[in-house]
């Protein structure tokens, strides 16, 4: 028997925001009935604000609780704030989840990401990170997802990876491969490498430009903002916020959150984004 917190039991017994938002403009569907849990999240986004959020879930008690908690956490929040919610935040909101059930919180975060991507119409790009190569055939988990979740949650063992992503929890044939991936992720934490090996400065700047163009600017433009790349000095990426973003009290969050996260994820995990404040 699982030891669920009172909050988990409360959300399981009295789930909030069940159903589907009428005229939703953001829909995220993740998981599958084959794997044993699935979540459909529907949102109404209005002027950059999540005005309504509802869910339907197929899954165990903690999957239901995590989905219910997620809707509570994002309702009334700006997209910007919501997009920074992690699986750890969901588990924390519930007063913790049993380790073996952490994948329920990961599913919540993924549904939110999928819904936001759907809203932004960049489904393909945002999901690119999870394309990669399928490592765990039983639960269709890719190497990219394993690496991403390992980094985000500081996971070092196969067991932890299984708890958070299910990978390795089926036939177990992929366990050696997961070990290799963990080795790759944590090998000499100091000497972190960008995906695809070390980049020259020219390559790095090109990649940064690409990422800003494809991954960041479309998002800012939705909210009437924009940004410009000013310079790259060692690992500092200097950007200038423009349009609605300029002088916005959340621009610092945008730089650190969105810009830096994307650059770290897709170019080099040691990059730092700094805002160039015009004098």
């Amino acid at each position: 028997m699982w030891e669920y917190s009172e909050k988990v039991m409360d959300h399981y017994e009295h789930p909030r925001n069940v159903g589907e938002v009428q005229n939703a403009n953001a829909v995220g569907e993740v998981g599958s009935i084959v794997c044993g849990d699935a979540l459909k999240l529907t949102l109404k986004i209005d002027g950059g604000l999540i005005t309504d959020a509802r869910f339907k879930t197929f899954g165990c008690g903690s999957a239901i609780a995590a989905a219910s908690a997620l809707t509570e956490m994002i309702k009334g929040r700006s997209l910007e704030e919501a997009s920074r919610i992690t699986n750890k935040d969901i588990a924390g909101f519930l007063g913790g989840l049993p380790e073996e059930k952490m994948h329920c919180s990961v599913m919540g975060q993924e549904a939110l990401e999928a819904a936001i991507a759907d809203y932004r119409g960049v489904k393909k790009e945002v999901h690119k990170e999870d394309e990669g190569e399928i490592v765990c055939k039983c639960f269709s988990v890719t190497d990219q997802k394993i690496k991403r979740v390992a980094l985000a949650n500081n996971l070092h063992t196969v067991e932890e990876i299984t708890n958070y992503t299910k990978a390795g929890g089926g036939c177990g044939a992929c366990i050696p491969k997961i070990e290799d991936l963990l080795e790759e992720v944590w090998r000499g934490e100091s000497a972190r490498k960008a995906p695809g090996g070390r980049l020259t400065m020219v390559q790095k700047i090109k990649r940064i430009e690409e990422v800003l163009e494809e991954e960041v600017r479309p998002i800012l433009k939705r909210d009437g903002g924009d940004l410009e790349l000013i310079d790259v000095v060692e690992n500092k990426v200097i950007v200038r916020m423009m349009g609605m973003c300029q002088g916005c009290h959340a621009s610092e969050l945008t730089t650190k959150g969105l810009v830096q996260e994307k650059l770290r994820e897709l170019v080099d995990p040691t990059l730092e984004a700094v805002e160039d404040v015009p004098g």
């Binding site: 069940v18 569907e29 599958s32 009935i33 699935a38 339907k56 879930t57 197929f58």
Partner: peptide, 16 residues
């Protein structure tokens, strides 16, 4: 079942 996104095979196939 009220909570479940699935009520039929069709809904399962369309999911995601």
């Amino acid at each position: 079942r009220e909570l479940s996104p699935f009520r039929s095979l069709r809904e399962i196939e369309a999911f995601g």
